Amino acid sequence: MRGLQEIRTDIADIDERILNLYKERMQLTEELVEYRLAAGKKIFDFTPVEAFDFKNARVVFQGVEGAYSQQALQEFFGADTQSYHVETWRDAMEAIAGDEADYAVLPIENSSAGIVSENFDLLVEYDNCIIGEQIIKIDHCLLGLKDAELSDITDVYSHPQALMQCSKYLGEHPAIERHSLKNTAGSAKKVRDDGKKNQAAIAAKITADIYDLKVLAEGIQNNTSNSTKFIIVTKKKVFRKNADKISICFEIPHKSGSLYQTLSHFIYNNLNMNKIESRPIQGKTWEYRFFIDIEGNLTDGAVQNALNGLEDETEGLKILGNY
């Protein structure tokens, strides 16, 4: 029987040979990328641009006036941007697909409550792509009618994520019943429209002024550094030449070691993966689609090498955006 050290030495030799082969492939891929760019060919059907022209852009967001999505929109595009709102996130994606809007702003993840799973699924369903992101600090307030007091409140309305983000505060008031609505600003509007002293909404402080409500409690979120990440989505498959983050998704064969082998493409190409999420695949019990963020640009040789490898080993590889 061979000794342990001898076996380990052989493994190290094989690892080095594998690494050298990957380096050779990376070099060839870099040459291929340079050829494609020189020939004016698109990179994975995406076109690099120096900058985006948002002049006269039509931007859609889900919710009503005062929604956090609207705040993200104004931070990214500017306060004077031509915008309008729709009822659901799907409506926003439909608006871009149907050329009714140029861009949509969608929440994708909260630092306390996690991902907005529906929007991950919509990114797969629609052929739209991410061109940017905007992070908004979330400060939730409890809002009621002008003549209401905290002791009057028996029912609170907000988006399910906001209710989760304020679970500790609500837990201190167990008599208050929680009700889920489609967005926070819409909850504030409901409280104003219903005109009932026993109702309150969890929403941004700005909505108190918009809907003539009273702040009953301020900063009630569990995490004082609570933030939500919004993505900017468009129908055009474009990315800025200085973009440094890539979002992709794919399915893998339902067998042992599939995920490990898939992720090895990032390791051997020295790419930093800073996020991985999974979502169930409809119609395939206990099978999942993976969403991954990596650092890099679609024109990078290492990125090209990794994505080419993934395309061979995965199902339904989709580049969601480079931004």
Results as ranks from 00 to 15, higher is better:
Gly3Ile: 04
Leu4Thr: 08
Asp10Cys: 12
Asp13Ile: 14
Leu21Met: 09
Tyr22Asp: 02
Lys23Leu: 04
Arg25Tyr: 02
Met26Cys: 05
Met26Val: 11
Leu28Ser: 04
Thr29Met: 09
Glu31Trp: 01
Tyr35Gln: 14
Tyr35Asp: 06
Leu37His: 06
Ala38Gly: 12
Ala39Pro: 02
Ala39Thr: 13
Lys42Ile: 04
Ile43Gln: 13
Arg58Met: 10
Ser69Gly: 06
Gln70Phe: 01
Glu75Lys: 15
Phe76Gln: 14
Gly78Met: 10
Gly78Asp: 08
Gly78Gln: 08
Ser83Leu: 03
Thr88Ala: 11
Asp91Gln: 09
Ile96Asp: 02
Ala101Pro: 08
Val105Gly: 09
Leu106Asp: 02
Ser112Glu: 12
Ile115Glu: 10
Asp121Cys: 11
Leu123Trp: 06
Val124Phe: 03
Asp127Ile: 10
Ile130Ser: 07
Ile130Met: 09
Gln134Asn: 09
Ile138Val: 13
Leu145Tyr: 06
Ser151Met: 02
Ser151His: 05
Gln161Pro: 00
Ala162Ile: 00
Ser167Phe: 04
Leu170Asp: 03
Leu170Arg: 09
Glu172Met: 13
His173Gly: 06
Ala175Val: 03
His179Arg: 15
Lys182Thr: 08
Ala185Glu: 09
Ser187Gln: 12
Ser187Thr: 14
Gly195Glu: 12
Lys205Leu: 11
Asp212Leu: 07
Val215Arg: 15
Leu216Glu: 02
Phe230Val: 11
Lys237His: 10
Lys237Ala: 04
Asn242Ala: 02
Ala243Asn: 02
Ile246Ser: 00
Glu251Met: 07
Ile252His: 06
Ile252Gln: 06
Gly257His: 08
His265Arg: 12
His265Val: 08
Phe266Arg: 09
Tyr268Arg: 15
Tyr268Asp: 09
Pro280Ala: 15
Trp286Ala: 12
Ile292Val: 15
Asn297Leu: 04
Asn297Ser: 04
Thr299Ile: 10
Gly301Leu: 01
Ala306Phe: 01
Glu311Thr: 01
Glu313Pro: 00
Glu313Gly: 00
Leu317Thr: 06
Leu317Asn: 07
Leu317Gly: 01
Tyr323Cys: 05
